[in-house]
Design a protein around this nucleic acid. Structure first.
Lengths: 223, 223
DNA sequence: GCGTGTGAACACATTCACAGCA
DNA sequence: TGCTGTGAATGTGTTCACACGC
């Protein structure tokens, strides 16, 4: 049964706002930094201050999933990290396949941050004969036709899509057919995939636009 | 005066939800695709269907900024693109500086998508002597100490930060000192910058976590 | 008929304020 | 005293439903 609001007739579980889930990732990241600084516990107010949220919000966010805090003390970092990972489903390794090994794809292969959070890029595929067979950061690029085989053999459920916009729809279709059910989409195009497949969009130009707007507004604000 | 809710005592302008702004970028992208397919006009319902929003939401989003539609016809794509760019502030070229020319930074230098949306990367800086002086995609990497000069000479107001997490705070401080007022942050760390500086976070591992959760939930849903 | 613009109704998310525990 | 967990109140965002224009 889903944790998120589904209005499934008789679902009386507490409904978790979608925004809570993205904050969980943020809390997790911050807690991992705290642990590295040998901080054993943290209060909702301190954690909130660092991230720019209210203490009440921090407490409520965690309360959706159980009682993790200790009155008078706060939250134990190690314990909370474990709980958040369990909630997100990242308390295990997720095998990931990269689709598209151009400029961006190659950089993603070299990005160490994925592994740290429990994602393991097990294969990379492309259509371009110029990159197929080449090796990047220890992975040899395979032809996209081998995707289904890779997915089955390595039990992959998530793909990173890093192809040009023009190729995005076709690539997404192949990904869906291969049996994958999650796509992290770097291509600047809206994918049309079945409901059974989740997607998360990362459009770098869009992010810059949001920043531009924000800067633009800030300037106006200084009346 | 800001378009966004600021509760400035006597501000009686319509208050624009923050979420509207991110949808504007999405609309813009889609409209640009429509133009490429020679589509002159589009209705709120069709535009909504493609992007997964209701028709009412699409109409309301635009209505915050004026009356752009034509009853019985819909919205004229070209015209709407112009309006959205004006709202976002991307109806002009934004000079951008890249801070951090490692794996990720180099890929961002090669990313053509920025230019298409009105962003021009005019300079790249780093601290590592191994990359300083090298040329990537037509730009020679300069020392980060030259940042202030670059910012002033090229009138830069936005930086892309692509350094390792450990270096993020220090780099952010230098960026702020240089007079920049917007940071697109790829480093997996929460920046602590003055209110006058806007930031947008893109944490690739966090995005994958969100996807993992979503996939994980979807599986549960198929009771 | 088709399609926009918009007040009113509704749904969702955040903050307040306080009881209770260490 | 310090801090959590939580119902109630508030605030924000989305959808409905319909008047009006082409």
């Amino acid at each position: 049964m889903s944790i998120l609001s589904q209005n499934s007739e008789d679902d009386k579980e507490p409904v978790v706002p979608k925004a809570v889930i993205s904050r969980l990732s943020l809390y997790l990241r911050e807690l991992q930094h705290l642990i590295r600084d040998d901080q054993q516990t943290i209060s909702s107010s301190k954690l909130g201050r660092v991230l720019g949220f209210t203490a009440a919000q921090v407490r409520k966010d965690f309360a959706y999933f159980g009682q993790f805090g200790y009155p008078g003390i706060g939250y134990r970092c190690e314990e909370l990290i474990g709980q958040i990972k369990k909630i997100l489903g990242t308390d295990r390794i997720w095998p990931v396949v990269l689709v598209g090994c151009g400029n961006m794809g190659q950089a993603l292969l070299g990005y160490r941050g994925f592994e740290k959070q429990g994602f393991h890029v097990v294969a990379a595929v492309d259509v371009d004969p110029k990159v197929i067979g080449k090796q990047f950061h220890g992975l040899t690029v395979a032809h996209i036709d081998t995707l289904s085989t890779i997915v089955i053999q390595q039990n992959v459920s998530v793909a990173i899509l890093a192809v040009p916009a023009k190729a995005a729809h076709e690539a997404a279709e192949l990904i869906v057919k291969s049996g994958i059910n999650g796509i992290l989409n770097f291509a600047p195009a809206t994918l049309n995939v079945p409901k059974t497949v989740s997607t998360v969009e990362v459009d770098l130009a869009m992010e810059l636009e949001q920043l531009a707007f924000s800067v633009y507004q800030n300037q106006d604000d200084s009346n």
